[in-house]
Write a protein that binds this DNA or RNA. Structure first.
Lengths: 341, 341
DNA sequence: AGCCTATATGCAATCGCTCCCACTTGCCAA
DNA sequence: TTGGCAAGTGGGAGCGATTGCATATAGGCT
């Protein structure tokens, strides 16, 4: 079942069938109708490989993520996918599983598929792969990449603002013994969050006792273990800032397990505002980082690069997206309160 | 940059390059080496569309899901993807957003991509689409589809066993006033869970007061609202069984918000055992439904259908998968306890 | 020397579609 | 009448790979 069968059935040439399907060029309405009837009658579905090969365009974007299981990503994927669909693109996803070696495979697979743009939403990197993309002139977009190079754009998150809001909140409540649980120290985004936190703290003239600076793994168990360590201290911290929500949730588990309560005994602040933060018990005070924003900026960055800056509507959107950082914002919920001296 | 460039550079024909890449047929080692050098030198990546078109095989499976944002799916996708990779397949995902109309689009897209098999892991259905798949002879696998038709397999979950374990646990603790919060009544899987729960209850000679049977939407807010309604009753239930974990989490929020505690005042049991259940506060007693199992069975069901039942290893695995239902199992954690009369 | 086989490689048709170009037809102006 | 133009359609090359078949070469055997 191919375009020739349809052409035969509709008594036209394959060229005409093609024209009817793509909707461009002029086809006499009656002819078009006949073709459409034939398509339905045969329940014909065009072959995407053939079309891609022939046109030399895939209308496909690749998105590289670390791990679909990480609650940070589904929202991102959802939004990206939605936008792609709205703009007649498709999106394919590739998991690196946090491994640069696997990232290389991911990129290779995306290149095989002739994607027209690649969004790299991970921290781990394979410089070699990046090179391969670059030398093909394929547009790329990164997340918080430090040194922006030519030929690629960069979605950058305004971590600082959110961190400052969180610090102001904690300090405003009267906390003095503040701890920080960071993420894995080989994860660039985690290191970035930590350093920005420390810097913001310093700028406010507050100094953090080194013993209160520890780290987990950005998962629940890591937060749990880190908090257990903090709880052994005497005096123990009265407020804990964390590098992501899963860490915060792990920390809260540890606090309850030690017979203490949040926020009565210890206040906890998360980062990311994943779906679960609102539903958690107690609902987590956290810094919201909009995955919808990130996905939107990433998508339009690629879309714009592929479809010339000439367009009007998309142009405006992208311009807006490129101008500003992705904002972050403190969301006050139930996991913070004044210390009960 | 295509196979001809490589051939020219290595001073061989395109046929030889192709043979080197696919690894089949005999190529003189030195020639192969020369070709490999050329491939690297040019950093050539083959064009998948051309390959697919030429071979007439896509090595691609499609997976239809409702919504990537639903925590039920990421695990499923992860596992499916992993298995696909291990078996030299790729997997593409399509979101229906719970809409049969969109499902039609999803299927159309998968057919365009010439997928070799389709796993339909959603409840919503578009009979028309199913027909299109069937008439192409493409293997399908469903999740808990009630009437198994020919030409498709069905992964079925043993809801009953898990429900019975949960009921035994609750009843064994001494609970008399048991409530149930179901899912959306237009979602087949939710209706199934509910009816199996009621049936299991009846079989044990326990009867449920109709007023204690209510439903949410399988999301946190629905569980919250449903629980609020239950809390207005006098006497209120002492144990609540729910149709999924998100519902249970919503219910717990409502209970705490009413100034009560879990499990002291009310016990809550979830269903699914999503990642968050373990980390929730209190950790949720729930019925585990292994997404890994589901994905594994779904994958091998398609894989086997596509690669003849003749293979040995896969055959064994698939046979095992097809024989048994996906088991469910009660996981005891902290959200259940004996009622404090 | 002549023949045969096994091994290694090349030629070219093919997959299903798109799109350039050429062609037909009908209409209007010159 | 004729030329020119626009609208509608068809022919067929080409996209980049795979693969059946033909061919070339080397070595072994009689």
């Amino acid at each position: 079942m191919n375009i020739r069968d349809v052409a035969k059935k509709a008594k036209v040439s394959t060229a005409t069938v093609s024209r009817v399907m793509s909707g461009v060029n002029i086809v006499k309405p009656e002819t078009a109708e006949r073709v459409r009837k034939a398509i339905n009658a045969l329940s014909y579905v065009p072959n995407l490989s053939a079309r891609t090969l022939s046109k030399g365009r895939s209308h496909l974007f690749g998105v590289v993520i670390s791990d679909i299981t990480n609650p940070f990503f589904p929202d991102l994927i959802y939004t990206f996918n939605e936008l792609a669909e709205q703009h007649k693109y498709r999106a394919v996803f590739a998991n690196t599983n946090y491994s640069p070696a696997r990232m290389e495979l991911c990129i290779h697979s995306l290149l095989e598929q002739k994607v027209e743009g690649i969004a790299i939403m991970t921290s781990e990197m394979s410089p070699n792969s990046i090179l391969m993309i670059a030398e093909r002139g394929i547009p790329m977009v990164f997340l918080n990449e430090p040194g922006p190079q030519k030929n690629l754009t960069n979605v950058v998150v305004d971590y600082k603002s959110g961190m400052e809001q969180a610090i102001d909140h904690i300090v405003g409540l009267g906390h003095k013994r503040i701890a920080f649980i960071g993420g894995p120290q080989d994860l660039r985004s985690a290191v970035l969050r930590q350093s920005i936190f420390l810097k913001a703290l310093k700028e406010k003239g507050i100094k953090l006792d080194k013993r209160r600076l520890t780290s987990g793994n950005h998962r629940v168990d890591g937060g749990y273990a880190a908090m257990q360590r903090l709880l052994e201290q005497n005096p123990r911290p009265t407020a804990v800032m964390t590098s992501n929500d899963l860490t915060a949730i792990g920390a809260i588990s540890a606090i309850y397990e030690a017979g203490l309560q949040v926020p009565r005994d210890i206040s906890v602040v998360g980062f990311d505002d994943i779906e679960m933060s609102r539903a958690y018990n107690p609902a987590l005070t956290t810094v919201r980082l909009s995955r919808v924003d990130i996905a939107t900026r990433a998508f339009f960055s690629l879309y714009d690069a592929c479809n010339g800056a000439g367009t009007t509507v998309s142009k405006r959107k992208v311009k807006g997206a490129a101008d500003k950082m992705v904002p972050t914002q403190l969301i006050l919920r139930k996991s913070t309160a004044a210390p009960t001296s």
